[in-house]
Design a protein around this nucleic acid. Structure first.
Lengths: 133, 133, 133, 133
DNA sequence: GTGGTCTAGACCACC
DNA sequence: GTGGTCTAGACCACG
C-alpha cells in the first residue's frame, strides 16, 4: 500500500514531525483503515526518500500514542481508534490550531469582525479546492 | 521604556523566537511607536533574565526584517512601518495562521460547517477575555 | 571537500564577513556546485582555525540570502542559484563596486579621462596576474 | 561657512568615518580653500545633527593627517596641501577604489571585456549627472 | 554524526 | 554609556 505523505524540504519543521502528523491524520480520519499493514520501515524510507531511522521514530512515536501496533517479524499495523476518541481527537487538533490563529489576530490587533471575514475567505478557498467533503 | 514581553520557560519554542514574535507584534501593531529607543541589549537582557547574546540576536533579526534600526554607540530604534505595509503585514500573519488551522480541519475531515462553528466558539472565547478591541 | 578561503588576520574586516564574502563568491561564480554538501560547522571551524559560532553565523547568513540550505542532523548544502539570478547577482556586485570607485573619482575631481586611464592600468595589472579568464 | 556633508543614516559606515572622508575630499580637491576657518565643533555638530564628540574626533583625525590646524581659542583652519601631495593623494584614493572593484570582478569571474563595458556604463552615467568637470 | 540554542564573558569601536 | 565581534563550551534535537 502506498501512503500519501507530502514532505516539504524547505520547511523548518523536522522531517519526522511532518511525517508523523500526516500519518496521524490519515489514521484518525479513517483514511487508513484499522488493521491495515503499513509498509516496512525500509520500504517506507525508500518511498519518502529519508533515512530508516526517521521512519522508525515515526512508527515508535505513533505506537506510543496507541495508533499503531507492531508485531515482531510481521510488521506494523494500524490500531483501532474508538469512534468517540476519534471525534475528540479531531476536535482537539482543530480547536488548537484555531486558537493559535485567533491569538495571532489578537496580538496584531485585528478586530473580531475583520478576523471573521478573513476566516470566511480562507475556508471558502480551501474547501472549494478540495471538493465537497 | 519597559517592553512587555512574556517568556514561557517550558515552551519548546526557542527563547529568541518567543521574544522576536512578541516584539514584532508590538511594533507592527503600533503599540511601540516609530522612533522609540529600545532598551540597550544589556538592560533588556537583565529585564528578560536572559543572555545579552539572545537579545542581540533578536534585535539583529528584526533589523534584518526592517523593523528596527540600530546605530553603534547610540542604540536600537523602532524603524518606520508604513501604514500600508503594516496592514499587509498584519493580514499576512493572520491569514497564514488561519490557513494552517483550516488545513488541519481538512486533514482530519471536519466539515466546513463544523469548522465554522468551532471557529465561532474560539473567537468568542478569546475576544471576550481581552475586552473589546 | 576542501573550501579555499583565505583569512586575513590583520584586516579590520570582521572574520565572519571575510568568510561570507569569499564563500558567496565561490557559490555564485559556480566554483562550488549546486547541491554540494559543505563541511560541517565543526570541521570548517577547524580548517579555518576559528570558532564554530563564527562558521555557524556564516552559514546562517548565507542561508538567509538563499545561497545555502541547511537541515538539522544532515548538514549544509549549496542551494541552487538560477543562471539568470546568478548573472544578475554578479553584475550587481561588480557594478556596485565600480560605482563606489567612480564616486571617489568625482569627489576628488579627477576628470573622466584620467579616471579611465587609471582603470585601464588597474585592470591590466590585475587580470595579468590571474592569467586569462 | 556651510560645509556640504551628506550623512547616510542607514549605512553601516560609522558616522565619523562618513564625515571624515567627505571633508577630506573637499579639502584635498581644493573645494575648501587653504586657510578657511571651519565651523566650531558645536556649530558643526548642530548642522550635522550629531554629537560634538563625533565632530571633535573628525577634526582631531584630520589634524593628525596634517589637513587641519587648530589654534586654541580661535578655531580650526584648513591647512595647506602641496600641489604634488594633492595629486598623489587623489590618485591613491581613486586607484584603491578601482582595485577593489576589479578584485570583485575577478572574484565573480567576470571577463576583462565585460568589466570594461560595465565601467564605461557607470562612468558615463555618473559624469553625465554631474555635468562636465 | 549533524545543526540549533543558549550561556558567560571578553575586547573592540563608536558616540 | 552604546552596539559589534569573537571565544569556549554546554546541552538539546535531528537523522
Amino acid at each position: 500500500m502506498r501512503i500519501p505523505i507530502q514532505i516539504n524540504e524547505n520547511s523548518a519543521e523536522p522531517l519526522y514531525h511532518q511525517i508523523e502528523s500526516q500519518l496521524r491524520s490519515l489514521i484518525i480520519s479513517g483514511q487508513i483503515e484499522e488493521g491495515t499493514l503499513l509498509p516496512s520501515i525500509r520500504e517506507f524510507a525508500g518511498n519518502l526518500n529519508c533515512s530508516v531511522i526517521t521512519v522508525r521514530r515515526v512508527y515508535q512515536d505513533l505506537e506510543g500514542e496507541g495508533l499503531l501496533r507492531t508485531r515482531q517479524g510481521t510488521g506494523t499495523f494500524v490500531a483501532g481508534v474508538g469512534d468517540l476518541a476519534r471525534e475528540q481527537y479531531k476536535r482537539d487538533a482543530v480547536v488548537d490550531a484555531l486558537r493559535t490563529a485567533v491569538d495571532k489576530g489578537l496580538a496584531v490587533q485585528v478586530s473580531e469582525e475583520e478576523l471573521t471575514v478573513l476566516f470566511m475567505e480562507v475556508i471558502r478557498e480551501k474547501y472549494k479546492s478540495q471538493g465537497g467533503l
